[in-house]
Design a protein around this nucleic acid. Structure first.
Lengths: 228, 228
DNA sequence: TAGACGTCGATTGTCGACAGTTTAGACTTG
DNA sequence: CAAGTCTAAACTGTCGACAATCGACGTCTA
């Protein structure tokens, strides 16, 4: 078998790596809400549906467990992670801690090239805002934040950001529509970049705090409104 | 088969979970340097040595890959992670970021009970210093820092600390003897706790910075001296 | 009728096997 | 003698199978 056929069409980056493919399909299914939180992930079922054996499915599940999308219960199998309001707080608290640091480092490493990359991404955010595609908007939002982590040039930090983002993607998938006014969200990124360009650590932290704190409160509110 | 026989006697917490056991045995082998950095981890070899099949070994390896102890090269297998000086910097940079935050949170959550736990752990550090058991000393050191993360009460933060610690354990395993004067190290923990008890964020950060920065410089120096 | 017990199907944990790929070593050639 | 080529062994990725275990349903008893 060459490429898995995900229930709904995916980029399907033609990997020869089954485990990676299965992991991607499962991740998509989770963040898109096709696998409801708390529901059981039956190895054989997934394997059959994807036309592979259970071995790659198990390994993929273990991967996603480490990523926090699934939880393993010995002898009972894997379940789609359930999020509580506490989890949101944990994630955002850590994200804030990480992104503050990333932004300060990014300011230190900033070059004309990387600065332009960040600016361009804000432009993309504005352009995407016209598209009325919430999922895309969320992705481009993360891309901006991820860029900051890339510029910070600490691989582990970047990986941590990716892990947190994948958890948040799931939460946001549950919430559904997140942004009332995408353009306004795009605008709120500008002071962050400005602070990074100016380079005062305190100012950077303050703006990152404001920006992410806003998202935190928003997501927190929505999760408390629409709980499982 | 009931309990795996690790090359050298381990606690062997009689789990019925083979994957967990294999992961523990492999971790031990790596941090104790029996598996040299860069060396290949042959699935069948490990499986044979441990009297299990390859499936649990593969899953354990995937776990350790996510933990950063092994790296996977498709179709070529797993290798014991090699550390460069850059890695040390990445790890300590992130650790500093995390522990600053943890300490500030810990101060906020501090109760008489948790304060006593931290104090007692410093006592343990002093007692251990008399034992001339470097591995144990390192473990008790981590336990103190881990306690701070526990008091901080953010599960994800705690997990991140554990991940970083497991990577550092490996590095320190490579270095061998780390502390010249264990008692002095034990003493340097005291200002950190004192700052947490007093509760001024700036002071806390300053002391954490000093304490961890010291370790950072020390480890960094030793790694640069004794590279692969 | 409510609760405890036993049975049966479904699912996981583990295993051995096979095919395709990589690697190491022998052999050839300039 | 060095470099390239070919061959064989070793290893990974994947699969299907089997035993152990868990959960649900039905049955028996008070």
């Amino acid at each position: 078998m060459r490429t898995l056929s995900p229930p709904v069409g995916l980029p399907a980056l033609a990997d020869t790596d089954l485990v990676g493919q299965v992991a991607r399909v499962l991740t998509q299914a989770v963040v898109e809400g096709r696998l409801a939180p708390g529901s059981k992930v039956v190895e054989a079922g997934i394997a059959r549906e994807l036309g592979v054996s259970r071995a790659p499915v198990r390994e993929a599940a273990r991967l996603l467990e480490q990523q926090g999308l699934l939880v393993a219960s010995p002898r009972r199998g894997f379940f789609v992670r359930k999020f509580a309001a506490d989890d949101i707080d944990d994630i955002y608290d850590l994200r804030l801690c990480v992104e503050r640091h990333a932004a300060v480092l990014a300011a230190r490493n900033l070059t004309p090239e990387t600065r332009d990359m960040l600016r361009r991404q804000i432009d993309v955010l504005h352009q995407t805002a016209d598209l009325d595609d919430p999922a895309r908007q969320v992705e481009e939002d993360y891309r901006f934040h991820r860029l900051i982590c890339e510029v910070a040039a600490n691989r582990r930090l970047l990986r941590l950001f990716d892990d947190l983002a994948s958890e948040l993607r799931m939460v946001i998938g549950l919430i559904g529509r997140l942004y009332d006014d995408p353009h306004e969200i795009a605008r709120t990124h500008e002071p962050v970049l400005a602070a990074i360009e100016q380079g005062h650590p305190e100012r950077i932290v303050a703006h990152v705090d404001y920006h992410i704190g806003h998202a935190w409160r928003e997501v927190s509110k929505l999760v408390r409104e629409i709980p499982a």
